[in-house]
Every structure is written in structure tokens, then in C-alpha cells.
Amino acid sequence: MSIMEDLRREEEKLLRTERLPHVWCPGCGIGIVLNAFLRSVLRRNMDPNKLVVVSGIGCTGRAAGYVNVDSFHTTHGRAIPFAVGIKFARPDLNVVVFSGDGDLFAIGGNHFINAARRNHDLLIIAVNNFTYGMTGGQHGPTTPTGAYTTTTPYGNPDRPFNIPHLAISLGAPYVARWTTYHVNQLQNSIHKALGMKGFRVIEIISQCPTVYGRRNYMRSPLSMMEYFQKNSIVKNDATFEEMELTYNGKIVVGEFRSVEDIPTYEERYEDIIRRAQNEGGD
């Protein structure tokens, strides 16, 4: 049996297969990302009993429901602080936050910012489909300027977050962006990030043909995928100016930052415990 076959067989064990088919629409990219994540976990030979997946609310938030590890579907926007609680209480666990753009960057934006600043040892898999899918396609914090959604019927006047900009400016040690078209690079990126420490952020541009694509001239799953294929440019170590992501424009993808050995919050706190117990007698 080949390695790939092995992986696929093992992957089934990491899925709550009795819950499949999942809730995501035909062609939804979240399944592709989940697939890449599980394969990366398997390639890392991680102990599934020490792996925890935390999600918020929304389409991507349902991911926690399909992974056969300790998994938590929390409240809207609160996946990161929930995960912080787990990781800080049990630093030996591998804790992954798997959630969507609205959850992580709108309602949960403050948690993202502060958890990144503190450098908690968490891997953040941020699936960005430019919209609030589960509530029917309203615009969110990552909707490109000009895009049409149910709450931007004349085009989106907002300026969206550029997630890698945000993450890098907060000192996140690993930051990458891919699309669901880049299945192999995505898998390699997650695989690499799983082997690193600190607040690692991978943004995956993902298709929502159902409520985003059809309002923005990409009605079918394939047409969204083709859009990613045609418009994305791989540019590792891109500068801030180069990390473009615009409506109908370029999607610059790649591994933008990868730095080892920045102490995590959890590591720094071990030092606090040492000092609290050693200093000043009792």
C-alpha cells in the first residue's frame, strides 16, 4: 500500500464519518481545507488524542463537528479565547483554531489581535470566503471593496482586512495565504506550520459559490475555482505592498513569514511559575 493510500485510510479515522455527508454546499472550499488539514496532521504523525480543534460559529465553524479528535464548536467569535484557555491550561496539547473570516476577524477580531500579540501557541486556520455564508451572504470584514452581497446591493463600500498584513504586524511567527486551488502548497504549508510554535496564521481563500459567487459572476463551484487559478500569483516572502487581494484583481499567495524561536505566551508563563515559586521565600 502506498503512502497516499495509507493517508487516505487514516484520514477516514480522523473523520466522524457517521456525520457525513457534511453540511457544506456543493463545491464549498471548506471541505478541501479540512481535507488538507487532516492530511497534514497525519503526515506529522501527531497523536490524535493530543490534538484539539476549536471552531467558532458559521459555515467553517462546523468543521469541529467532523474531526474525530477533541473538538469544540463554541460561540460566535470566541474560538480563539476558548482555545487559549485549553492551550494555556494544558500546554502539551496541540490546539488548532479552524474558523471562518467573519468569526475570526469581525466579531472575534479583538481576540485575534490580542492572542497574536501575546503569541499563544495556536495554529489558526482561517478560511476566507469573503462573506457570511451561513446567514445568507451578507458582507463581512474580508469582503472585497466593490463586491456584491445581500447587505451591499450596490457594491461593498468597506475596505477589507488584509489578514497576512494584520497577522505579520502583530508579530505572528508564521503567516501564509493560499487558495483552495493550491491544494498541495496548502497541505505543505499546514504541515510546516504544525511543526512550528507560536501564533501561526494560514489564510485560505475559499469559494462560496452559493451565496458569494452567484452574486459576483461566479455561479458555479468550478467558475470560482477557475477565478482562483487565473488570478493568483505565488509570491513567497511578499512585501506588504505585494500581498494584494482585491475584487476581480490579483490574489497574491505564498508563505509570507516564517520565523522560529519567538517565545510563546505559554513558555513565558512557565518562567513566571518558576519565579513565583522561587522568589521571596514564602
Partner: peptide, 8 residues
């Protein structure tokens, strides 16, 4: 396999 969003 990699592109299938449905583990199918």
C-alpha cells in the same frame, strides 16, 4: 482526492 471537498 485532494480536491474533493466531500471526502468522497
Amino acid at each position: 482526492e485532494l480536491y474533493c471537498p466531500d471526502f468522497a
